[in-house]
Nucleic acid binder design. Structure first.
Lengths: 192, 192
DNA sequence: GTCTATATCGAGATAGAC
DNA sequence: GTCTATCTCGATATAGAC
């Protein structure tokens, strides 16, 4: 029996737990978050969590998978836009729109990556793959613009976002994201 | 009796603990690090730690202060260089030289900032001030170059560094730092 | 499949001998 | 000032009733 089959039979509690984990882990961080926190957010009794996830690590893994799926959905929408410049700028817009959340809790992927890197488990690899999805997509856009340094540009773009997310969060100023968004937009225009 | 007086009388154990804390917290993260870890690294018995620091938070605070002092020392050396361009490029060079450490553990200031932000204590403010030291210094250099958007440029520079540090760490590839360092150097040249 | 009660364990913190 | 032994508490995880 697969996970999704189990989930159908149990009124989606597994999905609720994974979604709640993604949200609460972003807000509180992995170490600060107890299973009780996640269970409460998902409206599931604490002890019951272990029926769906054998360990806390498995729950974190499910949260990472939820992030990955979310990222793929965002990217899928961007791909409907006509030019690579449009697509990259729409990505920037999305980041700027999230600025209040970022000022409070940082970038969901970035803060997770930073935390998981300090742990012995294999979860750092999983979050690295999520980050790579974004980098690869951005590189693809720069390539479509005819740049032969597309990978370096993609890394610079994602780094700029991760960095300004950290500063926005650390200094609690959402407008840092707005200003950097504008700057990156001009940068993209200058590349053509 | 002040702390430094106490320290003199106790063969510098307080300083040893603060320095060990700075190192171990960078390597393992705040939550993953036990007082026993820090005590061992400083070669001090565990129970004795509480004579010097009443709580774990106070030790973390001391570690942040050590980082701040270290940063000020680095900046002090850079200030000896003749032009703002030289000073900024020397800062970049220092970052690139640290790339192996960054690939393993991330930027000391950035990873601490990311972690402390998820905590209820007031330590997020302390690390924000350390970050601000660097931003202010960089803004000063851009201003000396005659730029009236010096603060925005400084934020972009520090963000680029924080971001590429995160990617270098997450993807475990020190050469990402090398490439971005070269790119930022060209960027600085283009601003004059 | 669902949930309660509880075992276990490790960390921060303290008491008090020296 | 220094260090050992120990208290306390909270979190993960499990046993087992329903």
């Amino acid at each position: 029996m697969t996970h999704s089959e189990k989930a159908r039979r149990s009124s989606g509690k597994r999905e609720r737990l994974a979604a709640a984990a993604a949200k609460v882990l972003h807000e509180q961080g992995v170490e600060q978050t107890t299973l009780a926190d996640i269970a409460r957010a998902a409206d599931v009794p604490v002890g019951n969590v272990y029926y769906y996830f054998k360990t806390k690590n498995e729950l974190v893994e499910a949260a990472i998978a939820a992030h990955a799926q979310n990222l793929r959905a965002v990217i899928g929408e961007l791909d409907a836009l006509p030019t690579p410049q449009d697509r990259l700028k729409a990505l920037l817009n999305g980041w700027v729109e999230q600025r209040e959340l970022t000022a409070r809790y940082g970038c969901p992927t970035g803060t997770l990556a930073s935390e998981l890197d300090k742990r012995a488990d294999g979860l750092d690899q999983a979050i690295a793959e999520v980050m790579q999805i974004l980098i690869d997509w951005a590189a693809h856009q720069f390539q479509a613009m005819g740049r032969d340094d597309s990978r370096e540009l993609a890394l610079a773009l994602v780094a700029a976002y991760q960095g300004i997310s950290l500063l926005t969060n650390t200094l609690r100023d959402p407008e840092l994201m707005t200003a950097e968004g504008r700057r990156l937009e001009r940068w993209i225009d200058s590349l053509t």
